[in-house]
Simulated scan of single mutants.
Amino acid sequence: MDAVFSRIEHARTADGVIRQIETLILEGVLRDGDRLPGERELARQLDVSRPILRDALKTLEERGLILTRHGGGTYVADIIGQVFTKPVRELIATHHKATADYLEYRREMEAVAAEFAAKRATPEDLVLLAAIMKRMDEAHAAEDFEAEAACDVEFHNAVGECAHNIVLLHTLRACYRLLADGVFLNRARIYELSDARDTLLAQHRAIHAAIAAGDPEAARAAAIAHIDFVEKATFHAERTDDWQRISRLRLQQRGGEAAQA
């Protein structure tokens, strides 16, 4: 992490350390679960004394931004997962309208994120985005659903990072956490639909290509087309599940009647 933390300039105080780590978390450089360097190494990188560093880490932990595992180091806390509390997640997971609202919200937010990303992505951003796209291509070719689904979430997270808007970044991360946890969508059911995996890959490639080309209008349109497809595929998957449920009930009922005859 030598490129992440930098020497505290001017007054070497706990406040300077707190400010730097807070900013790294806010800007999305440090993510939940990321491990900080050991105390000695981090003090060296920041060029502060270890007592100052301890004071700063204590304050950050009290604020809920980091956590220390006994004998296991210091980590960035799961602040994104707490945006939607467990009771709220359970509530929206049991109400069908929430899925439609979730996709409607994502359509608008991802359109903005893709547009901003096409305008603002740095060369370093594009390197990261291309690497994720490459892993997605490889997972698709290997028919590794779990890896492909993970790359899907990581790709959208990266587009949010490329947009360079802090509020948009963390809002989208909260949305993707719900997606990754399966609160709204059963992505496995969508991937099972005919040609869905190929279509989704092509759509991710289109978003990536538009951002890499610096074309905001194309990026926005590609993001909207992607969510429109996900919405239709979700509806179709839900209808298919319902058809199967009804068919099983009919078969069960007919079988019961046959047994009685």
Rank of each mutant, 00 (worst) to 15 (best):
E90I: 03
A98N: 07
E110L: 15
H95S: 10
E104A: 08
K119C: 07
A98V: 01
L91D: 02
A121N: 11
R120C: 01
H96C: 06
A98H: 10
A93E: 00
H95I: 05
I92F: 10
H95N: 09
A100D: 05
L91W: 03
R107Q: 10
V88Q: 11
F116S: 10
R120Y: 01
T122P: 04
T94E: 09
A98L: 10
H95W: 01
K97S: 15
A98C: 09
Y105T: 15
E90G: 14
T99K: 15
R107H: 07
F116K: 13
F116Q: 13
F116Y: 11
L103C: 05
E104V: 08
E115F: 09
M109T: 03
E110M: 14
A93G: 07
E110K: 15
A114I: 04
Y102S: 13
A118T: 02
A111I: 08
E115M: 11
E110H: 10
M109Y: 02
I92V: 12
E104T: 06
T94Q: 13
E115P: 07
E110Y: 05
A111H: 02
H95T: 04
R106V: 09
R120Q: 02
K97G: 11
A113E: 03
A117Q: 05
A111Q: 14
R120N: 05
D101P: 06
R120S: 02
V112P: 04
A111F: 01
R107G: 05
R107A: 14
Y105K: 14
H96E: 04
E124S: 11
L103W: 00
P123C: 07
P123M: 10
E108R: 13
A111E: 04
E108Y: 14
A117K: 14
E115V: 08
E124N: 10
R107D: 01
E108V: 13
V88G: 07
A121P: 05
R120T: 00
E124T: 04
E124C: 09
